[in-house]
Amino acid sequence: MEIDPFIFRLSIFILSIFVGYYVVWSVTPSLHTPLMSVTNAISSVIIVGAIIASLSGISNNIFEVSNIFGFLAIILAAVNIFGGFLVTQRMLQMYKKKKKK
């Protein structure tokens, strides 16, 4: 019997939790706020689903209900992607070391 592809995805998921666990513990506490804003930005990769919802399929009428929800999700995720990455960038630029005299 073949292995269900779901099991492969589950494996990726569980291994990623472990990767996340170790990577996040090594984040320095002073960068916890940028950590939150950047995780916010990357979780908006959900935009992938939104794009599929709005573009996929043979749709003569792109204003079907499912497309509309896709469009709305694109806007929301885009706010988050740009907002999240840029505000993280802005914060990280402020972290400076002591100037050597």
């Binding site: 998921f13 996340g20 996040v24 995780t39 979780s43 689903g49």
Partner: peptide, 24 residues
């Protein structure tokens, strides 16, 4: 959603963000 769409990027990201928030 990543599982629904069978999308690796979403599954990996979801797991990363989920564990990050839990650790915090």
């Amino acid at each position: 959603i990543g599982f629904t769409l069978e999308n690796t990027a979403l599954i990996i990201t979801g797991a990363l963000v989920g564990s990050s928030g839990a650790i915090l």
